Amino acid sequence: MLKRIHHVAVICSDYARSKHFYTEILGLRVIAENYRAHRDSYKLDLALPDGGQIELFSFPGAPARPSRPEAQGLRHLAFVVEDVEKTASVLTAKGVEVEPIRVDEYTDKKFTFFADPDGLPLELYQGQIVFNQ
């Protein structure tokens, strides 16, 4: 059956701005970048440290989507980090607005939220996420 998430696809409104955010601010490595002339669209494959990927797409005229965490659809994309406070400080120093750090009432793990250039909610989560089976 399912083993892990292979990729998450994100459609952005400004390709250059989002590419800068995901590569320069978040530090993700570019696997491949392709311009598809027949669609006037870019597709940027970005590597996550665990082997997963983010696919960043641009499509002309793509409609905006509600992105607040309580809207239907994708709620947020969470990244595991060793130290939420340190990572939040690095992002803040790079001009990214980060919400106050909170503690998960069920796991006692620290977490916080920030957003990509299109307002997609992104989360930093302390340590390893453990799922009960």
Rank of each mutant, 00 (worst) to 15 (best):
S58W: 13
R75K: 02
E123W: 09
E24I: 07
R17D: 07
F21G: 07
L46P: 04
V103T: 13
D118S: 12
A16M: 09
E85I: 06
V90L: 07
E99T: 09
E99K: 14
K86G: 09
H38E: 15
D108N: 11
S41F: 10
K109I: 00
T23V: 13
S41W: 11
R65D: 02
P66N: 08
A9I: 05
P121T: 12
D14A: 05
G61K: 11
P121S: 12
V30Y: 06
I101F: 05
P63N: 05
H6V: 06
F21E: 08
Q72L: 12
D14I: 01
V8F: 05
A9S: 14
R36C: 07
K3Y: 07
F113G: 00
F131N: 11
A78S: 15
L74G: 03
Y22F: 13
P63L: 09
G27N: 09
A32Q: 11
L91P: 00
R65C: 05
G119K: 08
I54M: 07
Q53I: 03
T87E: 15
L74K: 04
L26V: 10
G73S: 04
Q126E: 15
R65Y: 05
C12F: 00
V84H: 01
F21P: 01
I5L: 11
N132Q: 11
I31P: 00
L26M: 14
V10D: 08
F21D: 08
R102C: 00
S41P: 08
K3H: 07
A16P: 00
E105G: 08
L122M: 12
Y22R: 09
R17L: 12
Y42F: 13
P121D: 08
R39H: 06
P100T: 13
G61I: 14
Y42T: 05
A47T: 02
V98W: 03
K19F: 13
P63I: 06
P63V: 10
R39L: 11
Q72R: 06
P49T: 12
E70V: 07
T87R: 13
I11Y: 08
F113I: 02
E123Y: 06
I129Y: 14
G73I: 04
A78C: 15
F131I: 13
A93Q: 15
